[in-house]
């Protein structure tokens, strides 16, 4: 009985500790800060230089008239960033990215219409194009296939015409 009571007390303490940690974590979450919802996670890999971005507010539902700013920092261009989008939309299809790493960051204006400092929220996009060692042979084979196709039709047509004349 005594052991059971001790075990119960220990378990109660553990549960209480977990609850405190969860509550503290919830309190420290940056509710209302802008963040990327798609793609999932903190990194994304693409082989065609495109990335479909979807964003919103963390921890709250969609807020009307919220102004967002999305910027891109690309590998080798760490000094400056490029504006991807600024406005009230919550998505953007980004294309034409060069091979390498690109960091996307987002922030939204607060209720006073002022942008906060850039937070930690970011998405790392790695563009890894298909290897040219695969591209060139495939293109060569495609060119051969195309030429043979034309020859088959042109020569086939000529042969038919020759037979018709004969």
């Amino acid at each position: 009985m005594h052991h059971a009571l001790i075990r119960l007390r220990t378990q109660s303490r553990t549960v209480a500790a977990i609850l405190i940690v969860i509550t503290l974590q919830l309190l420290t979450v940056d509710v209302g800060a802008a963040g990327f919802q798609e793609p999932d996670g903190e990194s994304y890999q693409t082989d065609d230089g495109t990335v479909p971005l979807v964003w919103g507010e963390i921890g709250v539902g969609p807020e009307p008239d919220r102004v967002y700013e999305v910027r891109r920092w690309s590998e080798g261009e760490t000094e400056s960033s490029l504006l991807v989008y600024e406005g009230e939309d919550t998505a953007s299809f980004v294309s034409g990215l060069n091979e390498g790493k690109h960091i996307f960051r987002i922030r939204s204006k607060d209720r006073d219409g002022v942008y906060p400092e850039w937070g930690d929220e970011s998405l790392e996009v790695t563009v890894d194009y298909i290897d040219m060692a695969i591209v060139w042979p495939l293109m060569g084979a495609g060119a051969v296939c195309f030429i043979v196709l034309i020859l088959t039709i042109v020569l086939g047509r000529r042969a038919v015409e020759r037979k018709e004349i004969a």
């Binding site: 082989d47 065609d48 230089g49 490029l82 294309s95 034409g96 990215l97 060069n98 563009v127 194009y129 298909i130 290897d131 040219m132 591209v135 495939l138 293109m139 495609g142 060119a143 296939c145 195309f146």
Partner: peptide, 24 residues
Amino acid sequence: VQTQPALFNALLPVALLSLFNNMF
């Protein structure tokens, strides 16, 4: 060219492959 440089890249692998792919 500044914001979407790959769109004007003469050796964009996906686009080169799509040239033949789309034709066939």
